[in-house]
Design a protein around this nucleic acid. Structure first.
Length: 480
DNA sequence: TTTTGAGTTGTTCGA
DNA sequence: GTCGAACAACTCAAA
């Protein structure tokens, strides 16, 4: 009687896809029965619990992923607990003697992974990891002096020079699934979906999680929007950004796929547009590079001088910002888009972040935490890196005197008011030229538009000029 | 070691 | 309306 080979565990994490999944391909080609496993681990130390919007996405992404796996004969086992313990238990009950995964780069996550690797090595089992989340391996790109980069441009130059993203690998055609009995948690029991109130209806209308939807979103973007990406991506009204961030966040599509699809696959698009797009992908790499070197990126100022910054405790103002009730239409539109759809256009992210930090003097960590909880694309690296960039406390940060003027930004990037009208409907009858600053509109114009400031729409919670001067003064604390 | 040039996304002011 | 300079000084990365 021939021996049945021991199974191999394919441990899914931020790579919920079949295509360009080198760990999965390795498992599929190993000749062993494959156990596809996802572990929900918020117990191991230094792992940041996901925000609510991310949980919503993850729920649907897992449903979709299980379905995709089913098409090639696979299944998806769900478990929760400390990942190290869960895996040893699966090993004990199935006699698995190998495990594969695609690498991840958080502090706690890496500690878990290396512990698993060690315990496998101790038993003489195979534990193999692959690069798939990032196009570069953090800690490899270093300055001439051997230090990690703190400035994007030299990082980019080094990346361009040293990194040649491999071609995507194909999806396995068939999985030889382990047919022993392994218990799986019920996804519903993980409680990732809101019940009362169900705040996710707007999110569900805006997004389709899963690999197939990610592929379609990428194809649509590359076909329709890449060619003038470098000029039009800044306008939140037409919103012709890629909108791929949540798909990338959960690994429903890989940066390798996106890089090659754009760079080789869309040669007809102008080089400048393709380059801008690739540079955005490399910003993501840069953020992970920072996270790897400074694991408490979301907790500590990258520039320690900002520890002296006189942040204001202002619960009421924070709440007005979160709810989209600041009285600055472009800010409120952004915050409401976030709340309703789980996502915000990047230009507007900068405007609302600058407003919270510089107009309200509220700690960037409060803004980062709100984004983390409400964004479907909340990314452990990009989110804190960008918040610190706006605050001026971060790597390669915006200079302190760069304070966004929400009125001017609105005029410049939402010229026809399409974005504001979409998310701040109580102003929809105002003439376009009064949308950026309704408080400056003549009384009869407001009346005609049915706007009563302080009643149908808030008066501005701070005066721009005054707030700007206050911020510049406060920033003196970070000097010297 | 020292020097040099540069640094994602802006705003304001005065000519 | 449009243009250029000033905004302040610092840190980074490479020569």
């Amino acid at each position: 009687m021939p021996d049945t080979p021991s199974p191999i565990i394919m441990w899914f994490r931020q790579d919920l896809r079949l295509a360009d999944n080198p760990a999965l391909l390795h498992a599929a080609n190993s000749g062993k029965p494959v156990i596809c496993l996802y572990v929900h681990d918020e117990i191991s130390p230094d792992i940041r619990p996901m925000g609510a919007a991310q949980e919503w996405w993850l729920h649907h992404s897992l449903v979709s992923h299980r379905k995709q796996l089913g098409k090639i004969g696979g299944d998806l086992i769900l478990r929760s607990g400390a990942a190290g313990d869960v895996i040893s238990e699966v090993v004990d009950t199935t006699s698995a003697d190998a495990i594969v995964w695609n690498r991840r780069y958080g502090e706690g996550e890496q500690a878990v992974d290396s512990a698993v690797k060690k315990s496998f090595a101790k038993r003489g089992y195979e534990a193999k990891s692959f690069a798939a989340l990032l196009m570069h391996e953090p800690k490899l790109l270093r300055t001439g002096g051997g230090d990690p980069y703190k400035v994007y441009t030299p990082f980019w130059k080094k990346f361009e020079q040293d990194v040649f993203p491999r071609k995507p690998v194909p999806a396995p055609e068939q999985l030889n699934t382990f047919d022993g009995n392994i218990g799986s948690d019920s996804l519903e029991d993980w409680g990732f979906l809101p019940t009362t109130p169900d705040w996710a209806t707007g999110i569900a209308e805006s997004w389709t999680p899963g690999e197939a939807a990610a592929r379609k979103a990428a194809d649509d973007f590359l076909r329709d929007d890449l060619a003038d990406y470098d000029t039009i991506r800044d306008q939140p009204g037409p919103d012709r950004t890629s909108r791929l961030s949540p798909h990338l966040r959960f690994g429903e599509i890989s940066p390798y796929q996106l890089f090659h699809d754009a760079w080789d696959g869309r040669r007809n698009a102008p080089k400048s547009a393709r380059l801008t797009w690739v540079k955005e992908l490399v910003w993501r790499e840069f953020s992970y590079h920072l996270l790897q070197e400074w694991p408490d990126l979301h907790k500590s100022n990258f520039k320690p001088k900002f520890d002296e910054f006189p942040w204001q405790e202002d619960k009421q103002a924070l709440r007005a910002w979160q709810r989209g009730q600041t009285g600055y239409p472009i800010v409120d539109a952004g915050m409401r888009q976030l709340w309703q759809t789980g996502w915000m256009h990047n230009r507007v992210r900068m405007i609302v972040a600058s407003f919270l930090i510089k107009h309200l003097l509220i700690d960037w960590r409060d803004g980062e935490a709100w984004f983390w909880d409400t964004l479907v694309d909340g990314d452990p690296a990009s989110n804190p890196a960008q918040w610190q960039w706006v605050a001026g406390s971060g790597a390669d940060a915006s200079p302190f005197f760069r304070i966004f003027n929400p009125i001017m930004q609105s005029e410049k990037f939402d010229q026809h008011g399409a974005y504001i009208k979409r998310y701040v409907p109580e102003l929809k009858d105002l003439p376009n030229d009064h949308l950026p600053a309704p408080w400056d509109a003549p009384e009869h114009v407001l009346i005609k538009a049915g706007v009563v400031l302080g009643e149908t729409y808030p008066k501005p919670i701070v005066d721009h000029k005054w707030a700007r001067e206050r911020a510049l003064e406060a920033l003196d604390a970070t000097k010297g």
